[in-house]
Nucleic acid binder design. Sequence first.
DNA 1: ATCTATGCCTGGTGGC
DNA 2: TGCCACCAGGCATAGA
Length: 272
Amino acid sequence: MPEIAEVRTVKKVLKEKLVGRTIINISYRYDGIVKSNKEEFKKVLIGKTITDVDNFGKWLFIKLGEYTILSHLRMEGKYYIKPTCEEYEKHEHIIFNLDDGTNLRYKDVRKFGVMYLVKTKDIYSTAEIVKLGLEPDDNKLTNEYIYNKIHSSNKPIKELLLDQTIINGFGNIYVDEVLFASFILPTRLGNTISLAECDRIKKEGSRIIKKATSCGGTTIRSYTSSLGVEGTYQKYLKVHTKQNQKCPTCGELIKKIRVGGRGTYYCPKCQK
DNA sequence: ATCTATGCCTGGTGGC
DNA sequence: TGCCACCAGGCATAGA
């Protein structure tokens, strides 16, 4: 499941490989991913040259001058660059033919991902983007910012950190890791979290996302390789996917519970 | 306003 | 081996 560290890795590789390439054709093998008008999406983008690739949280921006593709990978979305002649794999839904004889292919086994066509100048005012909070390692993210967003909530802190309108970019893996590093139980309600604890969330969140990004993200379960990039942060995971294994700090067995409908891993001794 | 349930999806897994 | 119910979960939306 791509979170901000994985999306940044995808952005970096796409930017290196795609800037300067012109789209000469687009074909749909399954078109449900494109949520804007599907014919307009093709008509506008064919003939355009990719000028930049960026991201904000988990959203990718593939910029083509005046227009931008907003792309969210959700659970299993991946991009591949392959020669045009290579046979299609199952679940490769959208094929962008490029002017150098390659394809940009969007693959998504579960079809949860979405793409929108927007004007580049409107990116940050679109409904999907305008509501998002600060990224975990944004310099403007302070303990007061987090505290103000959560101190009157009676939702578990795990759910609050997954809320992209509060902090933009955490997913299930990194929230478990941040809460472990911050010594906070995932079930604690927002209104019980102190300003000092918000400071730990901010510092550990920033540290973990920076480290994970530098590792190219985490490769577990469905989030495997994309664009030939294998993330290596999984070797630094302390609790996520570690149920019944010893806590690396105290030796207690890691527990798995469900919080807000999501599999949640924590150390019952280290986290209070 | 706020909470809960459901839908979107397919592949992997465990039980029989 | 096959069949099947169930689970994985980011996010939007409908309903309570």
